[in-house]
Nucleic acid binder design. Sequence first.
DNA 1: TGATAATAGATATGCACTATACCTATATGC
DNA 2: GCATATAGGTATAGTGCATATCTATTATCA
Lengths: 158, 158
Amino acid sequence: MPDRIDTALRQFSGYHMKRAFNVIQADLNATLKPLGLRMTSYSVLSVIASHAGVRQSQLADALSIERPNVVQLIDELEVAGWISRNRDPSDRRAWVLTCTLAGREKYRTATAAVQDHDARLTTGFSLAEREALIGLLQRIEANGHKGEDDVPVTIPKP
Amino acid sequence: MPDRIDTALRQFSGYHMKRAFNVIQADLNATLKPLGLRMTSYSVLSVIASHAGVRQSQLADALSIERPNVVQLIDELEVAGWISRNRDPSDRRAWVLTCTLAGREKYRTATAAVQDHDARLTTGFSLAEREALIGLLQRIEANGHKGEDDVPVTIPKP
DNA sequence: TGATAATAGATATGCACTATACCTATATGC
DNA sequence: GCATATAGGTATAGTGCATATCTATTATCA
């Protein structure tokens, strides 16, 4: 491809990220759709399946989802019969989330499908390359989070 | 971080892609906002600035944007006075898109800002690492596009 | 050539995802 | 005990992207 029309944009790693991510997103959603899941609902199911007893606010923090949207996702999974909400006896404001049997089974199936999907998109990658990619992505994420920790609020004397 | 809550998801390169991309998108939009641009409108401006005379359908193809949405983006840039639409004399259905002087200036400024942004998020990357990242992302994209070329439609005899 | 199909762009509209504002109930800290 | 913070929920709005359909023009080909 000698002269693409988007050559100028290809200097940016972010542009390649967007293109690759579009592809991943499309493939993942197509993978999960027949299972009744979406990218976000699968990740929520994953966290609950591997961390029984998690709270919705922890989910929101870990997955960077706003609290109101977590509620809807949980509703979805609960209606489908894959998770259950139970009051936390030690804090009656909170719900404790656990997978049902059907939910664990669904999680197993979906995880296999997602692993296939991930392998498909990284076809031809050596183990070292997969690890390098993840390492670089984590460093980008860390660079983005710089300086947003505990803003040291200096309160002026009155 | 010994035991994150999302450990299971971290096996997937796609999950790291999403996290990194979220960070990139947030930073890029914050970078472009004061300039009156967004991720998409900047990329459209970039293509027009470096490929004067491009058509809207070419833009749509190159940037994977649906045609109706290209129209709105072009409107936006035209109203801002950064590009102009002119009828293609050889095909009166099509428009020929070019940057105005103000548009070229805006593009210069924005590009400097985007370069800063990209460098900021890849802080600490060696040149080799930047190139490796882009190479891996391109391979993911290519893997995703496999098998979607020219579906050989076999028409059964009537 | 004249009918038909294909293409460039535009319009209207809907859906999915995310974000914001605000509410109740419970817990915590001085 | 009262102010404040936290867990969760409801309602709703904005954004981005996709689909269906339209007009005008060009291309195809019997």
